[in-house]
Simulated assay, not measured.
Amino acid sequence: MDLIKKHIVKPGESVKLKSIATEPDGPFDGKEDAREYVADTITKMQHLQYRLFVEGKQSLLIILQAPDAAGKDGLIRKTLGRMNPQGVRTYPFKVPTPIELSHDFLWRTHQCTPAAGQISIFNRSHYEDVLVVRVEDLVPKSIWSKRYEIINQFESLLCERGTRILKFYLHISAREQLERFKERLDYPEKHWKLNAGDYDVRDKMPKYHQAYEDVFEKCSTKRAPWFIIPADKKWYRDAAVAHIVHETMKEMDPQLPKVEADLDEIRALYEREAAEMGQDS
């Protein structure tokens, strides 16, 4: 099973989202098989994340981008967010505040990048500044067109510091997205997600796809690759991302530090304390 090779965007590769399937094509034997795989993989990720935290030298940045209802929140809740919160932080990037707008476009992002030993998960990211601002015509092309190279330099800086970067686009079909919008209407506990503006964005999806295609071609690098994940089936989305994150963490191979304490001395102290407590009882 090589889902990395299956879904990665090679550096400089020209991508057409219309030609990429939103439905899975193997390797899991249906929903239950994928869910069992995710459960097993989460356990392995938890062990690796513990080692990463204790080692305190490397870090991991996971970036999630997708159309609305493609499942960024669900992926975090069911898979990525299952690691120890002491070493993992999730950052949802909303519309910039006036203070954030008064700085350069990467200012708010850099503050959320992971420190050594940490994992950061971005729910949307700095890529909004070459996606939304482009499609919605919020800034002129002369500004946003220069940002691809700035982003590449920024991510290269993070890599030099010891941060691995994984970028995922959750690829959902218009039909499946509409079904999930209906689900939000049918269940009162999901009404808070309803937004009439989501339907306006659907009308602009060809423009958003073109903007994403430029992002993939210009900003998928060897050190910070993009992955396009079929997202019509939630179980495949979760399993594919879990696989790629786990394989990356294995490759990072975080090591527990060497023990500098005198174990014999500490064992003797423990045995003395235990013996004294036994006598007191």
Rank of each mutant, 00 (worst) to 15 (best):
A70F: 02
T113C: 06
D40R: 13
G117S: 07
S220T: 07
L75F: 02
K57T: 04
F53D: 08
D33M: 06
P230G: 01
K44V: 11
T113Q: 04
R267Q: 11
D214V: 08
A231I: 12
K193E: 13
I20Q: 12
L61S: 03
E155C: 07
V241G: 03
F216I: 02
P27N: 09
E247M: 07
K18P: 08
A196F: 05
P230A: 01
L178W: 01
L61I: 04
K167I: 02
L170Y: 10
T43I: 15
A39V: 10
A275P: 00
T163V: 15
E55M: 05
D33I: 06
E265N: 01
R35D: 06
E23C: 05
H126S: 12
V245L: 05
S156P: 04
D104H: 03
L157I: 14
M277A: 14
K207S: 00
S125A: 12
V215D: 00
K207V: 00
E36K: 13
M249W: 10
I172R: 04
A239H: 11
E32Q: 09
T97V: 02
V38S: 05
D203T: 09
S125Y: 10
R272L: 04
S14E: 14
V130C: 10
E217S: 02
T43S: 14
K141T: 13
K250F: 09
I63K: 03
V54S: 07
Q255C: 08
A70S: 09
I151V: 15
P96D: 06
I119M: 15
P114G: 05
K57F: 04
S125H: 12
V135T: 09
